[in-house]
Design a protein around this nucleic acid. Structure first.
Lengths: 216, 216
DNA sequence: CCCTTTTCACCTAGGTGGTAAGAT
DNA sequence: ATCTTACCACCTAGGTGAAAAGGG
């Protein structure tokens, strides 16, 4: 079984209509004699950063075989075949035509994969290395989404069967989880001001934009 | 086989007599409503930081079975049975009595362990999470060393035999490496000024103490 | 007009040696 | 006198939304 962590925060966002930022290149790459070479130099990871999700997708697992190997991964499926726009006057999302062609379907493997069930169950599994981009040509393995489209994150637990030869995607031996409260609209800039304010209030990295009041 | 990375930097330090800082608690823990709770909140890691090594111990592996599991770890053995003091007038280390009782012998497992040979050989293996402390009562799993004593880092590759039951320390199935150029004196403050200057010149985190000249 | 890209100040998080005070 | 500790300014590294600029 898998329990979504920070469920109440996800629900608070979901009530307002969660938005997630997608970018091509968050922080630009310095060049010239300074800045070069290196970039964290074990080849991968990439020279530029795309945006993480907030809230971060985190689950607590149970019921796995402690001694068996599992691969954990996520993907994102379109919630419908529509493109949206935000109507500021009514503070609501309106359908605005058919979806653009879907990006190549990618998955994000949790970087600790594969690992034993005991390891996965020991503590909360956090997908905080997952990055979103709207760059259709991205070759850094990030998740590619279309802006102004709705998505449902999915979480998959794949049992690595030691009797089979390789880690190919057996159509058996895996279990998937979809938490409806984690669905979101991909955007390049926040549309709903209440989403912006909730992000600022709850994301530690946005503390610089807080006005000044407490939060438990 | 295992090749030590940054060998010329290690040798440059070794010619001067490498020193490594050991501390009890590098950064103190904030307390009260701010600072608490969390501390990076997946239970471990610990509330305070001890010092890393610089240079970082890094190796490039080859000749492993790509499909077999290996555990990588390090330990530190006393180079002799002496205690030392630094004679500033002659800029040299002098023996100053017998060694103090050795700390409990600990090992540091590379946090990616266990992993396949292919994974270990893909890129340089870096032990940059390894922390040194002089706190005999440390319960955060850091390496405990006596200040003013000399140590030789050792690196071990343990083959995880799938036929045996558990990952117990089989006295077979492992290979050890000792690079003499990585030996060092544990200190609570640098003694040799030329070591200090070389650390400042070569460690990116010490850039704030550089006077101002280039280095390739 | 609607949406995207770029740049920026401001954070979190944590790795440096210096320095002065403390301990023995 | 010798060694250790605590605190500090200054870095690296990178995650925020704001605001301005750009593009259709």
């Amino acid at each position: 079984a898998a329990r979504l962590e920070m469920g109440s925060l996800w629900e608070e966002f979901n009530r307002l209509g969660t938005e997630m930022i997608v970018t091509k290149a968050g922080r630009w790459v310095p060049e010239g004699p300074e800045g070069f070479p290196g970039w964290g130099h074990p080849l991968f990871p990439p020279p530029f950063l795309c945006r993480r999700m907030f809230p971060t997708f985190q689950v607590k697992l149970s019921g796995l075989d402690p001694l068996a190997d599992y691969v954990l991964l996520m993907d994102f499926i379109p919630l419908d075949d529509k493109r949206y726009r935000y109507a500021f006057h009514s503070s609501s999302w309106l359908a605005a035509g058919r979806a653009e062609p879907a990006a190549p379907g990618r998955v994000h493997f949790h970087p600790d994969s594969p690992a034993k069930g005991a390891q996965w169950m020991r503590q909360i599994v956090s997908f905080d290395k997952l990055k979103l981009t709207n760059n259709l040509l991205d070759d850094n393995g990030h998740i590619i989404l279309n802006s102004m489209h709705r998505y449902q994150p999915r979480f998959h637990v794949v049992f690595v069967d030691p009797r089979r030869d390789s880690e190919r995607f057996a159509h058996q031996n895996f279990k998937s989880f979809s938490f409806p409260e984690t669905q979101f609209m991909a955007v390049t800039a926040y549309q709903n001001h209440r989403i912006t304010q909730l992000k600022i209030a709850s994301n530690p990295f946005a503390k610089g934009f807080r006005d000044g009041d407490p939060e438990p």
